[in-house]
């Protein structure tokens, strides 16, 4: 009798743990939404004040690299979800390989991003220093690229932290006999990972698309 009661208790506790972890992550993501919301607000306020300069800034960004990076992040979200599904089925090998693929795609995104950063520095498209003396809208473009570096930088920092936590999760999971017990960890982390994807979905049109025409 006691054993069945304690089994029920532990099942209830596991369910409560999942609910608490999920809610905790959503509260964190809500505060993050206001952080990025403030950056997007600054972006659109300045875009409203300097429309031509911001359109010129958008045209300086590489549309092909931006599109590839967007699809890479979406692919990483797919592998994250497949990793969680495999963990729910207690398939350790498949789960770990999916998570490693997720981390690898995250690193690929950062690699392409750093390539774009190096192009920007080569063309002096960064705030401070000698800033594009040949450009038509020096003030607005300075603000555009200031916001570009802050927004993509904060996003890349979140991704970097995510990859670090993911590496730690992969390490912990590889030492566990049953990955199914760690589903709550993966599920909660998955929310954060998809959230990074979500932010990029709005950064991409703001920084790469809007203003190529119109």
């Amino acid at each position: 009798m006691t054993s069945s009661a304690s089994l029920e208790d532990s099942a209830l506790m596991a369910e409560n743990r999942k609910r608490t972890a999920e809610l905790g992550m959503w509260i964190f993501l809500a505060s993050e939404a206001l952080l990025f919301g403030g950056l997007f607000l600054a972006y659109f306020v300045y875009r409203y004040s300097f429309p031509q300069a911001f359109a010129a800034g958008v045209r300086e960004n590489d549309l092909i690299l931006g599109t590839i990076n967007t699809i890479i992040l979406m692919l990483s979200a797919l592998f994250m979800t497949l990793g969680i599904l495999a963990a729910e089925n207690d398939n350790k090998k498949s789960s770990l390989s999916c998570l490693i693929m997720t981390a690898f795609l995250g690193l690929t995104f950062l690699g392409i991003k750093s390539l774009e950063y190096s192009h920007k520095f080569q063309h002096h498209l960064y705030p401070g220093g000698v800033f594009m003396p040949e450009k038509n809208w020096p003030v607005g473009e300075r603000i555009f690229f200031g916001l570009y570096f802050v927004m993509t930088g904060v996003h890349a920092l979140h991704l970097l932290v995510g990859i670090g936590i993911l590496a730690w999760l992969i390490f912990v999971l590889s030492h566990k006999p049953r990955v199914r017990d760690s589903t709550v960890w993966l599920y909660t982390f998955g929310l954060y990972w998809h959230y990074i994807d979500l932010i990029w979905i709005f950064l991409f049109p703001s920084l790469y698309l809007l203003g190529r025409f119109g």
């Binding site: 931006g66 049109p205 790469y208």
Partner: peptide, 20 residues
């Protein structure tokens, strides 16, 4: 991914005020 390719492609077409 299809929507991403679509939005990138549409950004290259001049739709005036509708691009945004």
């Amino acid at each position: 991914a299809g929507l991403t390719l679509a939005t990138s492609g549409i950004a290259l077409i001049n739709l005036g005020g509708m691009n945004f």
